[in-house]
Design a protein around this nucleic acid. Structure first.
Ligand SMILES: [Zn+2]
Ligand SMILES: [Zn+2]
Ligand SMILES: [Zn+2]
Ligand SMILES: [Zn+2]
Lengths: 133, 133
DNA sequence: TAACGTTATGTAATAATATAACATTTAGAA
DNA sequence: TTCTAAATGTTATATTATTACATAACGTTA
Protein backbone atom coordinates (compact mmCIF):
# COMPACT_ATOMS: atom_id res chain seq x y z
CA UNK A 1 0.00 0.00 0.00
CA UNK A 2 2.28 2.74 -1.25
CA UNK A 3 -0.53 5.26 -0.98
CA UNK A 4 -0.77 4.93 2.75
CA UNK A 5 2.96 5.21 3.23
CA UNK A 6 3.02 8.47 1.31
CA UNK A 7 0.87 9.98 4.01
CA UNK A 8 3.34 9.15 6.72
CA UNK A 9 5.54 11.89 8.06
CA UNK A 10 9.31 11.58 7.97
CA UNK A 11 9.73 10.04 11.40
CA UNK A 12 6.68 7.87 10.99
CA UNK A 13 7.99 6.46 7.73
CA UNK A 14 11.49 5.79 9.06
CA UNK A 15 10.05 3.91 12.00
CA UNK A 16 7.40 2.08 10.05
CA UNK A 17 9.93 0.89 7.47
CA UNK A 18 12.16 -0.44 10.23
CA UNK A 19 9.34 -2.35 11.92
CA UNK A 20 8.01 -3.58 8.61
CA UNK A 21 11.38 -5.07 7.69
CA UNK A 22 11.85 -6.75 11.05
CA UNK A 23 11.03 -10.46 11.19
CA UNK A 24 10.06 -10.10 14.83
CA UNK A 25 8.25 -7.57 17.00
CA UNK A 26 10.42 -4.61 17.89
CA UNK A 27 10.65 -2.85 21.23
CA UNK A 28 10.61 0.90 21.44
CA UNK A 29 14.16 1.35 22.65
CA UNK A 30 15.48 -1.10 20.11
CA UNK A 31 13.74 1.00 17.48
CA UNK A 32 15.31 4.10 18.99
CA UNK A 33 18.77 2.57 18.83
CA UNK A 34 18.24 1.59 15.19
CA UNK A 35 17.06 5.00 14.00
CA UNK A 36 19.55 7.18 15.81
CA UNK A 37 21.72 7.29 12.72
CA UNK A 38 18.73 8.80 10.92
CA UNK A 39 18.47 11.65 13.38
CA UNK A 40 15.79 10.35 15.70
CA UNK A 41 17.46 10.82 19.04
CA UNK A 42 14.83 10.79 21.76
CA UNK A 43 12.35 8.22 23.10
CA UNK A 44 9.48 10.62 22.66
CA UNK A 45 10.09 10.87 18.94
CA UNK A 46 9.77 7.11 18.73
CA UNK A 47 6.71 6.87 20.95
CA UNK A 48 4.93 9.62 19.05
CA UNK A 49 5.47 7.86 15.76
CA UNK A 50 4.43 4.53 17.29
CA UNK A 51 1.23 6.06 18.68
CA UNK A 52 0.30 7.43 15.31
CA UNK A 53 1.16 4.24 13.44
CA UNK A 54 -0.95 2.23 15.87
CA UNK A 55 -3.79 4.72 15.52
CA UNK A 56 -3.89 4.40 11.75
CA UNK A 57 -3.44 0.64 11.87
CA UNK A 58 -0.07 0.36 10.16
CA UNK A 59 1.37 -1.40 13.20
CA UNK A 60 0.05 -3.18 16.26
CA UNK A 61 1.29 -3.35 19.80
CA UNK A 62 1.79 -6.82 21.23
CA UNK A 63 0.67 -5.94 24.72
CA UNK A 64 2.11 -8.92 26.51
CA UNK A 65 5.53 -8.16 25.05
CA UNK A 66 5.59 -4.37 24.89
CA UNK A 67 6.60 -4.68 21.27
CA UNK A 68 5.36 -3.62 17.87
CA UNK A 69 4.81 -5.39 14.56
CA UNK A 70 3.67 -4.21 11.17
CA UNK A 71 0.10 -5.07 10.29
CA UNK A 72 0.17 -8.28 8.28
CA UNK A 73 -3.45 -8.00 7.33
CA UNK A 74 -4.10 -5.69 4.42
CA UNK A 75 -7.75 -5.30 5.26
CA UNK A 76 -7.04 -4.23 8.79
CA UNK A 77 -6.53 -0.54 8.16
CA UNK A 78 -7.92 0.98 11.25
CA UNK A 79 -7.29 -2.01 13.36
CA UNK A 80 -9.53 -2.17 16.32
CA UNK A 81 -9.86 -5.93 16.22
CA UNK A 82 -6.59 -7.81 16.45
CA UNK A 83 -5.53 -11.38 17.09
CA UNK A 84 -2.05 -12.81 17.35
CA UNK A 85 -0.33 -16.12 17.81
CA UNK A 86 2.75 -15.99 20.00
CA UNK A 87 5.29 -18.78 20.35
CA UNK A 88 6.37 -18.97 23.95
CA UNK A 89 9.64 -20.56 22.98
CA UNK A 90 11.04 -18.53 20.09
CA UNK A 91 8.75 -15.52 20.55
CA UNK A 92 7.65 -15.59 16.92
CA UNK A 93 4.47 -13.55 16.53
CA UNK A 94 1.97 -13.90 13.71
CA UNK A 95 -1.13 -11.85 13.11
CA UNK A 96 -4.14 -14.09 12.77
CA UNK A 97 -6.40 -13.35 9.87
CA UNK A 98 -9.51 -15.43 10.29
CA UNK A 99 -12.84 -14.02 9.25
CA UNK A 100 -14.83 -16.51 11.27
CA UNK A 101 -12.93 -15.67 14.43
CA UNK A 102 -13.29 -11.94 13.76
CA UNK A 103 -16.99 -12.32 13.15
CA UNK A 104 -17.45 -14.41 16.27
CA UNK A 105 -15.67 -11.90 18.47
CA UNK A 106 -17.19 -8.82 16.89
CA UNK A 107 -20.64 -10.27 17.48
CA UNK A 108 -19.83 -11.42 21.00
CA UNK A 109 -21.84 -9.76 23.70
CA UNK A 110 -21.51 -10.57 27.36
CA UNK A 111 -24.23 -11.08 29.92
CA UNK A 112 -24.25 -7.40 30.89
CA UNK A 113 -25.41 -6.47 27.42
CA UNK A 114 -22.13 -4.72 26.78
CA UNK A 115 -20.85 -5.21 23.26
CA UNK A 116 -17.60 -4.42 21.66
CA UNK A 117 -16.21 -2.96 18.49
CA UNK A 118 -12.66 -3.39 19.65
CA UNK A 119 -10.66 -6.26 21.04
CA UNK A 120 -7.20 -7.71 21.26
CA UNK A 121 -6.58 -11.43 21.46
CA UNK A 122 -3.23 -13.05 22.11
CA UNK A 123 -2.86 -16.81 21.77
CA UNK A 124 0.14 -18.57 23.29
CA UNK A 125 1.67 -21.89 22.36
CA UNK A 126 4.53 -23.46 20.50
CA UNK A 127 5.06 -22.85 16.81
CA UNK A 128 5.64 -25.79 14.49
CA UNK A 129 9.39 -25.37 14.58
CA UNK A 130 9.58 -25.30 18.36
CA UNK A 131 7.12 -28.17 18.78
CA UNK A 132 9.48 -30.49 16.90
CA UNK A 133 12.35 -29.93 19.30
CA UNK B 1 -11.83 -20.43 48.66
CA UNK B 2 -10.27 -20.28 52.09
CA UNK B 3 -8.23 -23.38 51.38
CA UNK B 4 -6.31 -21.76 48.58
CA UNK B 5 -5.61 -18.66 50.58
CA UNK B 6 -4.14 -20.71 53.39
CA UNK B 7 -1.44 -21.82 51.02
CA UNK B 8 -0.35 -18.29 50.33
CA UNK B 9 2.78 -16.99 51.98
CA UNK B 10 2.70 -13.88 54.12
CA UNK B 11 3.52 -11.39 51.38
CA UNK B 12 1.36 -13.18 48.87
CA UNK B 13 -1.62 -13.04 51.16
CA UNK B 14 -1.19 -9.38 52.04
CA UNK B 15 -1.03 -8.48 48.39
CA UNK B 16 -3.81 -10.78 47.29
CA UNK B 17 -6.15 -9.44 49.96
CA UNK B 18 -5.47 -5.90 48.84
CA UNK B 19 -6.13 -6.66 45.19
CA UNK B 20 -9.16 -8.74 46.05
CA UNK B 21 -10.73 -5.88 47.97
CA UNK B 22 -10.04 -3.35 45.26
CA UNK B 23 -12.98 -2.50 43.00
CA UNK B 24 -10.59 -1.79 40.16
CA UNK B 25 -7.37 -3.24 38.79
CA UNK B 26 -4.34 -2.23 40.82
CA UNK B 27 -0.95 -1.22 39.53
CA UNK B 28 2.20 -2.60 41.05
CA UNK B 29 3.47 0.64 42.56
CA UNK B 30 0.06 1.49 43.91
CA UNK B 31 0.10 -1.91 45.60
CA UNK B 32 3.57 -1.17 46.92
CA UNK B 33 2.41 2.13 48.38
CA UNK B 34 -0.54 0.44 50.05
CA UNK B 35 1.42 -2.37 51.69
CA UNK B 36 4.38 -0.38 52.95
CA UNK B 37 2.76 -0.09 56.33
CA UNK B 38 2.72 -3.88 56.45
CA UNK B 39 6.46 -4.09 55.94
CA UNK B 40 6.67 -4.69 52.23
CA UNK B 41 9.13 -2.05 51.21
CA UNK B 42 10.58 -2.92 47.81
CA UNK B 43 9.15 -3.29 44.31
CA UNK B 44 10.65 -6.72 43.97
CA UNK B 45 8.70 -8.02 46.92
CA UNK B 46 5.53 -6.91 45.19
CA UNK B 47 6.49 -8.27 41.80
CA UNK B 48 7.46 -11.64 43.23
CA UNK B 49 4.12 -12.00 44.95
CA UNK B 50 2.31 -10.85 41.81
CA UNK B 51 4.19 -13.37 39.69
CA UNK B 52 3.23 -16.18 42.01
CA UNK B 53 -0.39 -15.10 42.31
CA UNK B 54 -0.67 -14.92 38.53
CA UNK B 55 0.97 -18.33 38.23
CA UNK B 56 -1.53 -19.97 40.54
CA UNK B 57 -4.44 -18.12 39.01
CA UNK B 58 -5.50 -16.05 42.00
CA UNK B 59 -5.03 -12.86 40.04
CA UNK B 60 -4.71 -11.87 36.40
CA UNK B 61 -2.69 -9.18 34.71
CA UNK B 62 -4.60 -6.81 32.47
CA UNK B 63 -1.88 -6.46 29.88
CA UNK B 64 -3.14 -3.33 28.19
CA UNK B 65 -3.21 -1.55 31.54
CA UNK B 66 -0.25 -3.05 33.41
CA UNK B 67 -2.59 -3.75 36.26
CA UNK B 68 -3.82 -6.69 38.27
CA UNK B 69 -7.24 -7.93 39.35
CA UNK B 70 -8.36 -10.85 41.47
CA UNK B 71 -9.77 -13.79 39.56
CA UNK B 72 -13.53 -13.42 39.49
CA UNK B 73 -14.04 -16.88 38.13
CA UNK B 74 -13.92 -19.61 40.71
CA UNK B 75 -13.28 -22.32 38.17
CA UNK B 76 -10.31 -20.53 36.71
CA UNK B 77 -7.69 -21.83 39.10
CA UNK B 78 -4.71 -22.14 36.91
CA UNK B 79 -5.82 -19.50 34.54
CA UNK B 80 -4.34 -19.88 31.15
CA UNK B 81 -7.43 -18.75 29.32
CA UNK B 82 -8.65 -15.31 30.25
CA UNK B 83 -11.08 -12.80 28.84
CA UNK B 84 -11.90 -9.34 30.08
CA UNK B 85 -14.19 -6.47 29.30
CA UNK B 86 -12.64 -3.05 29.73
CA UNK B 87 -14.54 0.22 29.73
CA UNK B 88 -12.51 2.81 27.89
CA UNK B 89 -14.19 5.61 29.74
CA UNK B 90 -14.20 4.63 33.43
CA UNK B 91 -11.62 1.83 33.15
CA UNK B 92 -13.87 -0.67 34.87
CA UNK B 93 -12.64 -4.19 34.17
CA UNK B 94 -14.73 -7.33 34.40
CA UNK B 95 -13.60 -10.89 33.89
CA UNK B 96 -15.76 -12.59 31.31
CA UNK B 97 -17.00 -16.01 32.23
CA UNK B 98 -18.56 -17.53 29.18
CA UNK B 99 -18.20 -21.22 28.54
CA UNK B 100 -19.11 -20.95 24.89
CA UNK B 101 -16.48 -18.32 24.30
CA UNK B 102 -13.89 -20.33 26.21
CA UNK B 103 -14.73 -23.44 24.25
CA UNK B 104 -14.60 -21.59 20.96
CA UNK B 105 -11.19 -20.12 21.70
CA UNK B 106 -9.73 -23.25 23.23
CA UNK B 107 -10.71 -25.18 20.14
CA UNK B 108 -9.53 -22.52 17.77
CA UNK B 109 -6.70 -23.53 15.52
CA UNK B 110 -5.15 -21.31 12.92
CA UNK B 111 -4.17 -22.13 9.37
CA UNK B 112 -0.64 -23.11 10.40
CA UNK B 113 -2.02 -25.98 12.44
CA UNK B 114 -0.82 -24.32 15.60
CA UNK B 115 -3.23 -24.68 18.47
CA UNK B 116 -3.37 -23.08 21.82
CA UNK B 117 -3.99 -23.96 25.42
CA UNK B 118 -3.49 -20.43 26.53
CA UNK B 119 -4.89 -17.08 25.49
CA UNK B 120 -5.74 -13.65 26.75
CA UNK B 121 -8.57 -11.64 25.29
CA UNK B 122 -9.32 -8.03 26.11
CA UNK B 123 -12.52 -6.44 24.85
CA UNK B 124 -12.90 -2.67 24.82
CA UNK B 125 -16.02 -0.59 24.85
CA UNK B 126 -18.26 1.46 27.07
CA UNK B 127 -19.92 -0.01 30.11
CA UNK B 128 -23.64 0.55 30.66
CA UNK B 129 -23.05 3.43 33.02
CA UNK B 130 -20.74 5.26 30.65
CA UNK B 131 -22.94 4.59 27.64
CA UNK B 132 -25.80 6.51 29.26
CA UNK B 133 -23.80 9.70 29.61
C1' DT C 1 0.14 35.15 -0.77
C1' DA C 2 -1.09 35.71 4.14
C1' DA C 3 -3.11 34.19 8.12
C1' DC C 4 -4.74 30.47 10.64
C1' DG C 5 -5.17 26.16 12.86
C1' DT C 6 -3.46 21.44 13.02
C1' DT C 7 0.01 18.13 12.95
C1' DA C 8 4.65 16.94 13.51
C1' DT C 9 9.19 17.72 15.47
C1' DG C 10 13.08 18.73 18.85
C1' DT C 11 14.92 18.58 23.47
C1' DA C 12 15.45 17.91 28.35
C1' DA C 13 13.88 16.03 32.30
C1' DT C 14 11.47 12.69 34.80
C1' DA C 15 7.83 9.22 35.86
C1' DA C 16 6.32 4.54 35.83
C1' DT C 17 7.15 -0.30 35.26
C1' DA C 18 10.12 -4.22 35.96
C1' DT C 19 14.37 -7.09 36.79
C1' DA C 20 19.35 -8.53 38.26
C1' DA C 21 22.25 -9.95 41.80
C1' DC C 22 23.20 -11.52 46.12
C1' DA C 23 22.38 -12.72 51.02
C1' DT C 24 19.35 -14.75 54.36
C1' DT C 25 15.30 -17.04 56.27
C1' DT C 26 11.39 -20.12 56.39
C1' DA C 27 8.66 -24.21 55.55
C1' DG C 28 8.27 -28.91 54.28
C1' DA C 29 9.82 -33.33 53.06
C1' DA C 30 13.01 -37.14 53.72
C1' DT D 1 17.70 -33.54 62.01
C1' DT D 2 19.21 -32.57 57.51
C1' DC D 3 18.24 -31.26 53.19
C1' DT D 4 15.94 -28.74 49.63
C1' DA D 5 12.78 -25.65 47.60
C1' DA D 6 10.31 -21.62 48.27
C1' DA D 7 10.05 -17.24 50.07
C1' DT D 8 12.00 -13.02 51.83
C1' DG D 9 15.03 -8.81 52.35
C1' DT D 10 17.87 -5.28 50.28
C1' DT D 11 20.31 -2.46 46.98
C1' DA D 12 20.97 -1.15 42.64
C1' DT D 13 19.71 -0.79 37.99
C1' DA D 14 17.28 -1.71 33.58
C1' DT D 15 13.34 -0.92 30.74
C1' DT D 16 9.27 1.37 29.26
C1' DA D 17 6.72 5.59 28.80
C1' DT D 18 5.18 10.49 29.64
C1' DT D 19 5.28 15.66 30.94
C1' DA D 20 6.39 20.11 29.68
C1' DC D 21 7.68 23.44 26.72
C1' DA D 22 9.49 25.42 22.39
C1' DT D 23 9.69 25.39 17.38
C1' DA D 24 8.74 24.02 12.58
C1' DA D 25 6.06 22.14 8.70
C1' DC D 26 1.74 21.44 6.51
C1' DG D 27 -2.82 22.28 4.65
C1' DT D 28 -6.67 25.13 4.27
C1' DT D 29 -9.00 29.06 2.93
C1' DA D 30 -9.58 34.22 2.98
ZN1 LIG E 1 -3.47 -5.90 11.35
ZN1 LIG F 1 8.69 -21.11 18.14
ZN1 LIG G 1 -9.99 -15.87 36.37
ZN1 LIG H 1 -17.51 2.84 32.19
Amino acid sequence: MVEKQLNLSKNQRIIFDLIDKSPEPMKAYSILFNVQKKGIKAPLQVYRALDKLVEIGKIHKIESRNAFIACQNSSCQISKTTAFSICESCEKVTEIKDNKLAKYLTNFSDNTGMNYKKYNLEFFGLCKKCKRK
